[in-house]
Structure formats: C-alpha cells, structure tokens
Design a binder for these strands. Structure first.
Lengths: 211, 211
DNA sequence: GTCTATAGCGGGATAGAC
DNA sequence: GTCTATCCCGCTATAGAC
C-alpha cells in the first residue's frame, strides 16, 4: 500500500519537533528519520535536501495563519478588531506546540540560507491590518490621537508574542516549572486585550504624568 | 609581550558576533579564530571547549545587567519605577548589537546543553521587581486594582523585549530595510513607558468596554 | 517506496614544536 | 602564548539493490 502522504506527514511532524527543539544546524537527518520511524535515506525521496524539508515544515504552519489574519471583516469597530487580531495571534501560537520556538529561531536566523519569508507574511498579514484599525479608531475618536500607530501596533502584538516565545521565562516566573497550562494562555489573552484597550482608549483624565 | 586579556577579548568578540549571527551549532571554531584574527587552535588555550566559550560570551553580557536591574532604589513611586525598569531594559538590549539575537537563541535553546541560566537571572532581576512595583501601586491607589500583577509585568516587559528581538520584523514593517536607527529605539522606549502608564493608571472613566 | 552501503567532506579537539 | 599537523568522528547526500 502506497502511504506517500502518510509517510511524508510523519517526516514533517518529526522534523518540526526536532527543528523546534534543536534548531536547524543541530538537527540531523538520521534523527528525523528515527523520530519518524522511517529510514533516514527515505527523506531524500520526499524532500530535495535538508533546507527544503525545513522550509516545508514552516510553510505548513504559516500558510493557514496568513489566510486567517486576512479574514477580518473590512468594516469593524477598531477595538473589536484589535480583540480579534489578538485572538487570531493566540490561535496561531497554539496551532502547534512548536510554533513559538520555530518563530524564535526564525527571528534569530532571519538572514540564514534556510530562513523563510515567514517574517514578511506575518507582518503584512496582521501588522498592517492592525495599523489600519488604529488609524480608523483615531479618526472616529475611540482611540487616543497622540499615539503613534506603528508603535502602538507593536505594543499590542508584543504582549502575546512575547508571552509565547519567552515561555521558559514566563512559566518559570509564574511558578509553573514544567510548562504552562493551556488555560493560562487563554487568560493571558483576555488580559492582553484589556491591557491594550485600556492603554489605547481616550479618557477624560485630569492627572498629568511625569515628563 | 603577553597579550592574554587582549587576545581573549578578541576571541570573545568574534565568538559573540558569530554565535549571534549563526547560532551555537552552526558556528565553527575555525570561523571564530579567523574572525578574531588568531589561530583557531589557540581558542583551546583560553577556553576548555566550545560550550564554555559560549557560556563565557553570555556571562560577559548578562552579568552587568543583573547588577544594573538590582540598582533600583527601594522606595520609589511605582510609575517612576516602571519607567526606570523599561529604560534599563533598553540599555541592556543596546549594550551590544548582538544581545537581542543571543537572547532569542537562548529562549529557543533553553533546554540545550549549551544553554545558560541567563533566563533565571533576567527574570529574578527585573521581573520580580516589576511585580513588586505593581503591587505597591495597587496598594497606594496609583495602579488599577483589577489588573493581574504578573500578567501586567509581562505586558510591560514584552513591549521592549519584542521590539528588539523581532527587529527583522519591526524594521521591515516600519520601512527601514537595513536595520533600525538607534534613535528609533529611544523613541519606542518613550512610547512603551507611556503606553504602559496609560494602561495601568486608574481613571474615572464612564465608558464600558464590550464584554 | 523503501532499504543498505558508502563516498566525501568538514567539524571539534589534541599533540607537540617553537 | 602561538602555530602546524592531524586524528577521529559524524554528518549530508547519493548509488543502487529490492
């Protein structure tokens, strides 16, 4: 029985886990084969070489996110749009347990030969949309006009991004020594949305902040 | 003339640059020697092996930051304390152009043999202090009581952390295609402090946010 | 589609001359 | 302290049988 797609999926799964855990250079073809339960030489039947296997791993994960982020309704209240983008971001980070690490490595390796334009896709997808939402909110008076839209977009995105990518720090600091429970992530997402809304909305405030 | 310290410093500089750019596994002893302008075999005179060289690289950078973060005055207004911690964080990220990448790799590699407890030092240093500040602010009424202190600390730290670590994304998205100018980082730090203050301060606000 | 065997290269680390 | 020479290992990738 020809198990082409099944075998290649097993290879991709094993490769994803190992690339995430060890990085591109430290992951060996043999290790991937062993982890996948197939003969290492077989990898070269399905993928041209190690780099293309790596890129296939990334494409499988990042592809659907680009789709998902574009799915925001064109006309939507800015604050609600921000909430949805944060939720989509969380969903992406949780779409595989290895996504945050793969992303961290991609950030570090962005100029390496094996790197992907993941970066472009993620930014053009979500970031641009977020900037538009902020501008729209400043126009209709729901968002403070003194905020720089690009900086604000970074501030909003950073919360969830950092929460996942810095998970070894975060879980250590919060007292979970063996990785964070999934519900904690959902609660943080709630917090992140509220934190962002609170920072961003206009307010009739009399107090001055120190210069 | 015995140039012990000079030579070892040159080795550390070269190693730092290469470990940041290529990662631990992809960086070769020969490449470090060449980059440093010394004979590759000489590295083994100064450092026991590749891993200890890597750890020496990290220790050199992280050491002084742990000191710096602890330097906050014990009695300080919470909002001002937050400002200072953010500034210290920026200073650390800029203490060498390679720090953000090294940190990104350390986050991804945290369970590898070459990894350092950098993570513990950074969190116990800055994060705990930040949580204390938030709690103090909630006690004296300057900080919203409904915020979770740990989550809020993460939100504050994340802004600057992400800004630097995700620099390939950030500079691309902001239109700088060849790396970010240094002044932009200072402006972002200003923004991050204001964003955090705005999110965190109590306010006499009548509007409800959507549930 | 899957396996065995191996070519060919480049890495970390050491011995020992100077 | 610095350099040359080299050992030994494990990796990527391929050839070719089944």
């Amino acid at each position: 029985m020809a198990q082409t797609s099944d075998t290649s999926a097993r290879i991709l799964d094993a490769a994803e886990a190992l690339f995430a855990r060890l990085g591109f250079a430290a992951t060996t073809i043999k290790a991937i084969g062993t982890e996948a339960g197939v003969n290492p030489a077989l990898l070269y039947y399905y993928f041209a070489d190690k780099q293309q296997l790596y890129q296939a791993v990334l494409d499988r994960r990042v592809g659907d996110f680009a789709r998902r982020a574009a799915n925001l309704p064109a006309e939507i209240a800015p604050l609600e749009g921000i909430r949805r983008l944060v939720k989509a971001q969380v969903a992406f980070m949780q779409s595989s347990p290895h996504v945050p690490r793969l992303l961290a490595r991609e950030l570090a390796d962005h100029e390496a030969a094996n790197a992907r334009p993941v970066i472009r896709e993620l930014s053009t997808g979500a970031f641009r949309r977020l900037c538009e939402l902020i501008l729209a909110g400043q126009d209709d008076g729901t968002i403070r006009p003194d905020l720089d839209p690009a900086f604000t977009a970074i501030s909003i995105i950073s919360q969830t991004a950092w929460f996942f990518i810095a998970q070894p720090v975060v879980s250590g600091v919060m007292g979970y020594d063996g990785g964070l429970p999934a519900e904690e992530a959902a609660q943080f997402a709630e917090h992140a949305v509220r934190f962002a809304h609170s920072a961003v909305t206009v307010r009739p405030d009399r107090k001055r902040e120190q210069p």
